[in-house]
């Protein structure tokens, strides 16, 4: 698995798209830092970008890479290598290359502008951690979709739809549910619904760091208890980790059964 991971990683790091992705984050962060000069504000603006862009790029990239490396995969499958090693190697290579682009793209300019001199190091860490986890989750989902669908067009469509679902549609449904059932105590529902969407989870983690917890606490005791304490952050973080593990396990299952 290590060998395949390395090959995939080197292959991707040299790819134009990874460089483009890296360049985009470098440019965005540098421009934001240069224009505002206030590190904490830049962290906040980047949070929104990370929430939307990381999943989208990871999805597109994941599905693209899985289809493009199909011949290579078939070649590998002919060798005496475990399927898990092949697919996990490719998946982690992909996830790590995306995460590296993100971390270097955002971290580089921040270091240059003196991140350690400010008290924003924790916020910065949360930002990067969320970006990395979202990249892993969505590249995993994309990989999974590519594995399950031979038809490329269908695969691409499904991948986009998955991103759209988690980024937009899910929140729409949630909003409708909350408004529709507003006569009932909704706090547990609102909280548990957010746990099923990694993007919502990351958003809430970030909002908690932005000290909006009290704003949420305004609505009631359950929110305050969950979001106003370390408990909320801990649970959200672990559920997000669980979300990272989920596609990896599913990839193993699907790859093990698939007939190439």
């Amino acid at each position: 698995m290590k060998k395949i991971f390395q090959y995939t990683l080197y292959d991707l790091i040299r790819s134009r798209w990874t460089l483009f992705y890296l360049g985009f984050f470098l440019l965005l962060t540098t421009v934001l830092l240069a224009f505002s000069g206030d590190i904490s504000k830049v962290v906040i603006s980047l949070m929104n970008v990370v929430l939307i862009l990381c999943p989208l790029i990871a999805t597109m990239f994941g599905v693209m890479y899985a289809y493009n490396s199909r011949e290579f995969t078939e070649l590998l499958l002919a060798q005496p290598i475990k399927r898990t090693s092949i697919f996990w190697g490719q998946y982690f290579g992909l996830g790590v290359s995306l995460s590296l682009s993100l971390a270097i793209g955002i971290g580089g300019p921040f270091l240059f502008y003196g991140l350690f001199a400010t008290g924003e190091i924790w916020n910065f860490f949360i930002l990067i951690a969320n970006g990395v986890m979202l990249s892993l989750i969505f590249s995993g989902l994309a990989f999974l979709i590519a594995l399950r669908n031979e038809n490329r067009i269908k695969g691409f469509g499904l991948a986009i739809l998955t991103w759209l679902f988690f980024a937009v549609i899910y929140d729409g449904i949630m909003l409708l549910l909350l408004v529709f059932f507003r006569e009932y105590p909704l706090e547990p529902l609102a909280l548990s619904l957010s746990l099923f969407n990694p993007i919502d989870l990351s958003r809430i983690l970030i909002l908690l760091k932005l000290d909006i917890s009290a704003l949420m606490g305004y609505t009631g005791a359950v929110f305050e208890k969950f979001l106003g304490t370390g408990l909320g952050i801990t649970i959200a973080f672990f559920v997000l980790l669980f979300w990272v593990g989920l596609p990896a396990l599913a990839i193993r299952r699907v790859a093990g059964r698939k007939d190439f």
């Binding site: 909350l178 704003l215 949420m216």
Partner: peptide, 9 residues
């Protein structure tokens, strides 16, 4: 309760 959706896309 919809405040959990604050700042979502």
């Amino acid at each position: 309760e919809t405040i959990v959706l604050l700042r979502s896309f």
